[in-house]
Protein backbone atom coordinates (compact mmCIF):
# COMPACT_ATOMS: atom_id res chain seq x y z
CA UNK A 1 0.00 0.00 0.00
CA UNK A 2 1.24 3.48 -0.70
CA UNK A 3 0.03 6.60 1.04
CA UNK A 4 -1.43 9.11 -1.41
CA UNK A 5 -2.44 12.61 -0.31
CA UNK A 6 -4.97 14.57 -2.34
CA UNK A 7 -5.30 18.35 -2.77
CA UNK A 8 -8.12 20.36 -4.27
CA UNK A 9 -7.03 21.64 -7.67
CA UNK A 10 -5.31 24.83 -6.57
CA UNK A 11 -1.83 26.02 -5.68
CA UNK A 12 -3.03 27.18 -2.25
CA UNK A 13 -4.55 23.81 -1.53
CA UNK A 14 -1.33 22.03 -2.52
CA UNK A 15 0.74 24.32 -0.31
CA UNK A 16 -1.62 23.82 2.57
CA UNK A 17 -1.46 20.06 2.18
CA UNK A 18 2.33 20.08 2.03
CA UNK A 19 2.50 22.18 5.19
CA UNK A 20 0.60 19.39 6.95
CA UNK A 21 2.55 16.50 5.46
CA UNK A 22 5.84 18.08 6.52
CA UNK A 23 4.62 18.02 10.12
CA UNK A 24 3.90 14.29 9.86
CA UNK A 25 7.62 13.45 9.62
CA UNK A 26 6.95 10.61 7.19
CA UNK A 27 7.57 11.29 3.53
CA UNK A 28 4.48 10.73 1.36
CA UNK A 29 4.47 8.10 -1.37
CA UNK A 30 2.61 10.49 -3.61
CA UNK A 31 0.67 13.76 -3.68
CA UNK A 32 -1.99 14.16 -6.36
CA UNK A 33 -4.62 16.57 -7.57
CA UNK A 34 -8.09 15.22 -6.70
CA UNK A 35 -9.46 16.39 -10.05
CA UNK A 36 -7.38 14.11 -12.22
CA UNK A 37 -6.56 11.36 -9.75
CA UNK A 38 -7.56 7.87 -10.81
CA UNK A 39 -8.15 5.62 -7.80
CA UNK A 40 -6.48 2.25 -7.73
CA UNK A 41 -6.47 -0.62 -5.29
CA UNK A 42 -2.92 -0.20 -4.11
CA UNK A 43 -3.33 3.38 -2.99
CA UNK A 44 -4.26 4.31 0.51
CA UNK A 45 -5.88 7.73 0.12
CA UNK A 46 -5.36 10.13 2.97
CA UNK A 47 -7.51 13.22 3.27
CA UNK A 48 -6.26 15.98 5.51
CA UNK A 49 -8.44 18.85 6.56
CA UNK A 50 -7.48 22.03 4.72
CA UNK A 51 -9.69 24.69 6.21
CA UNK A 52 -7.59 26.75 8.57
CA UNK A 53 -6.23 29.52 6.32
CA UNK A 54 -4.16 30.94 9.16
CA UNK A 55 -2.15 27.76 9.13
CA UNK A 56 -1.49 28.17 5.41
CA UNK A 57 -0.48 31.80 5.81
CA UNK A 58 1.99 30.96 8.54
CA UNK A 59 3.55 28.27 6.35
CA UNK A 60 3.85 30.57 3.33
CA UNK A 61 5.48 33.21 5.48
CA UNK A 62 8.39 30.92 6.17
CA UNK A 63 9.56 31.20 2.53
CA UNK A 64 11.06 34.01 0.46
CA UNK A 65 9.23 35.32 -2.61
CA UNK A 66 11.88 33.67 -4.81
CA UNK A 67 11.10 30.29 -3.37
CA UNK A 68 7.35 30.72 -3.69
CA UNK A 69 7.84 31.91 -7.26
CA UNK A 70 9.87 28.82 -8.11
CA UNK A 71 7.37 26.33 -6.68
CA UNK A 72 4.42 28.18 -8.21
CA UNK A 73 6.00 27.87 -11.66
CA UNK A 74 6.72 24.17 -11.05
CA UNK A 75 3.06 23.78 -10.11
CA UNK A 76 2.07 25.25 -13.50
CA UNK A 77 4.12 22.60 -15.33
CA UNK A 78 2.84 19.23 -16.49
CA UNK A 79 5.62 17.25 -14.85
CA UNK A 80 4.19 13.98 -13.49
CA UNK A 81 6.08 14.30 -10.23
CA UNK A 82 5.72 18.02 -9.74
CA UNK A 83 3.98 17.71 -6.35
CA UNK A 84 6.75 15.56 -4.92
CA UNK A 85 9.42 17.86 -6.38
CA UNK A 86 7.72 20.82 -4.70
CA UNK A 87 7.41 18.89 -1.44
CA UNK A 88 11.11 18.01 -1.25
CA UNK A 89 12.16 21.43 -2.49
CA UNK A 90 10.17 23.16 0.25
CA UNK A 91 11.33 20.70 2.90
CA UNK A 92 14.93 21.58 2.05
CA UNK A 93 14.08 25.27 1.77
CA UNK A 94 13.00 25.24 5.42
CA UNK A 95 16.56 24.25 6.22
CA UNK A 96 18.60 26.23 3.66
CA UNK A 97 16.33 29.24 3.01
CA UNK A 98 17.48 31.17 -0.09
CA UNK A 99 20.77 29.27 -0.14
CA UNK A 100 18.77 26.37 -1.48
CA UNK A 101 19.46 27.66 -4.99
CA UNK A 102 23.15 26.80 -4.60
CA UNK A 103 22.40 23.12 -3.98
CA UNK A 104 22.06 22.07 -7.59
CA UNK A 105 23.37 18.60 -6.72
CA UNK A 106 20.15 17.97 -4.80
CA UNK A 107 17.84 16.44 -7.35
CA UNK A 108 14.71 18.27 -6.17
CA UNK A 109 16.52 21.62 -6.34
CA UNK A 110 17.96 21.06 -9.79
CA UNK A 111 14.63 19.78 -11.11
CA UNK A 112 12.64 22.62 -9.55
CA UNK A 113 14.94 25.25 -11.06
CA UNK A 114 14.96 23.63 -14.50
CA UNK A 115 11.20 23.11 -14.59
CA UNK A 116 10.41 26.58 -13.34
CA UNK A 117 12.76 28.11 -15.94
CA UNK A 118 11.08 26.05 -18.62
CA UNK A 119 7.65 27.32 -17.59
CA UNK A 120 8.95 30.90 -17.42
CA UNK A 121 10.46 30.64 -20.88
CA UNK A 122 7.24 29.37 -22.40
CA UNK A 123 5.21 32.12 -20.71
CA UNK A 124 7.68 34.71 -22.01
CA UNK A 125 7.41 33.37 -25.56
CA UNK A 126 3.63 33.46 -25.45
CA UNK A 127 3.61 37.04 -24.23
CA UNK A 128 4.88 37.67 -27.74
CA UNK A 129 3.21 34.95 -29.81
CA UNK A 130 -0.35 35.28 -28.48
CA UNK A 131 -2.68 36.97 -31.01
CA UNK A 132 -5.90 38.76 -30.15
CA UNK A 133 -8.81 39.20 -32.53
CA UNK A 134 -11.32 41.97 -31.96
CA UNK A 135 -14.87 40.62 -31.72
CA UNK A 136 -18.14 42.42 -32.48
CA UNK A 137 -18.91 42.53 -28.75
CA UNK A 138 -15.72 44.57 -28.15
CA UNK A 139 -13.78 41.72 -26.59
CA UNK A 140 -10.21 40.98 -27.67
CA UNK A 141 -10.13 37.20 -27.97
CA UNK A 142 -7.13 34.85 -28.14
CA UNK A 143 -6.66 31.10 -28.24
CA UNK A 144 -3.53 29.36 -26.97
CA UNK A 145 -2.44 25.79 -26.49
CA UNK A 146 0.68 25.90 -24.34
CA UNK A 147 2.60 22.91 -23.04
CA UNK A 148 2.51 24.31 -19.50
CA UNK A 149 -0.46 25.90 -17.78
CA UNK A 150 0.70 29.49 -18.22
CA UNK A 151 -2.66 31.26 -18.61
CA UNK A 152 -2.39 32.90 -15.19
CA UNK A 153 1.05 34.33 -15.96
CA UNK A 154 -0.24 35.69 -19.28
CA UNK A 155 -3.33 37.17 -17.63
CA UNK A 156 -1.22 39.06 -15.12
CA UNK A 157 0.78 40.45 -18.02
CA UNK A 158 -2.21 41.59 -20.07
CA UNK A 159 -4.04 42.91 -17.03
CA UNK A 160 -1.42 45.65 -16.84
CA UNK A 161 -0.82 46.07 -20.54
CA UNK A 162 -4.42 46.13 -21.79
CA UNK A 163 -6.13 47.29 -18.65
CA UNK A 164 -8.76 49.38 -20.43
CA UNK A 165 -9.91 46.63 -22.80
CA UNK A 166 -12.18 43.64 -22.40
CA UNK A 167 -10.31 40.48 -23.24
CA UNK A 168 -10.72 36.75 -23.15
CA UNK A 169 -7.99 34.14 -23.49
CA UNK A 170 -8.84 30.48 -24.05
CA UNK A 171 -6.49 27.60 -23.32
CA UNK A 172 -7.86 25.22 -25.91
CA UNK A 173 -6.47 21.98 -24.49
CA UNK A 174 -7.23 22.63 -20.86
CA UNK A 175 -10.59 24.28 -21.51
CA UNK A 176 -9.82 27.19 -19.25
CA UNK A 177 -10.82 30.76 -20.03
CA UNK A 178 -9.34 33.90 -18.52
CA UNK A 179 -11.88 36.70 -18.77
CA UNK A 180 -11.02 40.31 -18.00
CA UNK A 181 -13.75 42.91 -17.44
CA UNK A 182 -11.47 45.97 -17.06
CA UNK A 183 -11.26 45.27 -13.33
CA UNK A 184 -10.60 41.64 -12.52
CA UNK A 185 -9.57 38.44 -14.21
CA UNK A 186 -11.93 35.49 -13.82
CA UNK A 187 -10.88 31.92 -14.59
CA UNK A 188 -13.76 29.94 -16.04
CA UNK A 189 -14.36 26.53 -17.54
CA UNK A 190 -16.40 25.60 -20.59
CA UNK A 191 -19.48 25.00 -18.47
CA UNK A 192 -19.30 28.40 -16.84
CA UNK A 193 -19.29 30.27 -20.15
CA UNK A 194 -22.95 30.65 -21.00
CA UNK A 195 -22.70 31.94 -24.53
CA UNK A 196 -19.75 32.95 -26.60
CA UNK A 197 -20.29 34.89 -29.78
CA UNK A 198 -17.08 34.81 -31.78
CA UNK A 199 -18.31 37.05 -34.57
CA UNK A 200 -15.48 39.35 -35.66
CA UNK A 201 -15.52 43.13 -35.62
CA UNK A 202 -15.95 44.72 -39.06
CA UNK A 203 -12.41 46.10 -39.12
CA UNK A 204 -10.73 42.90 -37.93
CA UNK A 205 -10.04 41.49 -41.36
CA UNK A 206 -8.46 44.74 -42.52
CA UNK A 207 -5.92 44.84 -39.70
CA UNK A 208 -5.13 41.13 -40.02
CA UNK A 209 -4.43 41.72 -43.68
CA UNK A 210 -2.22 44.74 -42.89
CA UNK A 211 -0.25 42.70 -40.38
CA UNK A 212 0.31 39.80 -42.77
CA UNK A 213 1.53 42.24 -45.44
CA UNK A 214 3.92 43.83 -42.98
CA UNK A 215 5.17 40.42 -41.86
CA UNK A 216 5.98 39.35 -45.42
CA UNK A 217 7.55 42.67 -46.39
CA UNK A 218 9.82 43.18 -43.42
CA UNK A 219 11.91 40.06 -44.14
CA UNK A 220 15.04 40.62 -46.24
CA UNK A 221 14.96 38.15 -49.13
CA UNK A 222 18.73 37.91 -49.46
CA UNK A 223 18.83 36.70 -45.83
CA UNK A 224 15.97 34.19 -46.00
CA UNK A 225 16.41 31.62 -43.23
CA UNK A 226 13.41 29.44 -42.43
CA UNK A 227 15.45 27.22 -40.14
CA UNK A 228 16.30 30.11 -37.83
CA UNK A 229 12.69 31.25 -37.96
CA UNK A 230 11.52 27.80 -36.85
CA UNK A 231 14.13 27.62 -34.11
CA UNK A 232 12.99 30.87 -32.55
CA UNK A 233 9.29 30.35 -33.19
CA UNK A 234 8.61 26.60 -32.83
CA UNK A 235 6.04 24.98 -35.05
CA UNK A 236 3.88 23.87 -32.14
CA UNK A 237 2.72 27.50 -31.70
CA UNK A 238 1.96 28.20 -35.36
CA UNK A 239 -1.68 27.11 -35.13
CA UNK A 240 -2.49 30.21 -33.15
CA UNK A 241 -0.07 32.68 -34.76
CA UNK A 242 -2.02 34.60 -37.37
CA UNK A 243 0.85 35.21 -39.79
CA UNK A 244 1.93 31.53 -39.75
CA UNK A 245 -1.51 30.00 -40.38
CA UNK A 246 -0.97 29.55 -44.09
CA UNK A 247 2.38 27.83 -43.49
CA UNK A 248 0.98 24.84 -41.64
Amino acid sequence: MSNVYLYNNSFESLMHLISKIILLKNNPDNIKNRVNYEPNLLDNIIDLELKDTKELKLFLNSFSLDILHTVYYVYLSENDNKELIIYYFLKNALKYHNEIYLHRNLKCVNMAINISNYVGREAHKLKGFLRFKLLKNNFYYAEISPTNNVIEILSNHFKKRLKNEYWLIKDVNRNIYALYDKKNVYYLTDKEIVSLNLELDNKEEKFEDLWKSFFETVAIKERQNFKAQRNFMPKKYWNYILEMENRI
Binding site: G128, L162, F215, V218, R223, N225, K227, A228, Q229, F232
Partner: peptide, 30 residues
Amino acid sequence: RKNANGVGNAAYSGICHSFANDGRCISLLK
Protein backbone atom coordinates in the same frame (compact mmCIF):
# COMPACT_ATOMS: atom_id res chain seq x y z
CA ARG B 1 7.44 52.47 -18.83
CA LYS B 2 4.22 51.87 -16.88
CA ASN B 3 0.67 51.91 -18.16
CA ALA B 4 -0.79 55.15 -16.79
CA ASN B 5 -4.42 54.30 -17.49
CA GLY B 6 -3.94 54.14 -21.24
CA VAL B 7 -2.77 51.49 -23.67
CA GLY B 8 0.31 49.40 -23.12
CA ASN B 9 3.51 49.30 -21.12
CA ALA B 10 7.12 48.36 -21.77
CA ALA B 11 8.71 45.06 -20.71
CA TYR B 12 12.24 45.60 -19.42
CA SER B 13 13.54 42.38 -20.98
CA GLY B 14 11.92 43.15 -24.32
CA ILE B 15 9.54 40.77 -26.11
CA CYS B 16 9.81 39.22 -29.57
CA HIS B 17 6.36 38.94 -31.13
CA SER B 18 7.26 37.10 -34.27
CA PHE B 19 10.16 35.98 -36.41
CA ALA B 20 10.31 36.99 -40.05
CA ASN B 21 11.24 34.66 -42.90
CA ASP B 22 14.85 35.79 -42.54
CA GLY B 23 14.90 34.58 -38.91
CA ARG B 24 15.08 38.09 -37.46
CA CYS B 25 12.93 39.00 -34.49
CA ILE B 26 9.92 41.24 -35.06
CA SER B 27 9.26 43.27 -32.00
CA LEU B 28 8.39 46.72 -33.27
CA LEU B 29 6.37 48.07 -36.16
CA LYS B 30 9.42 49.13 -38.16
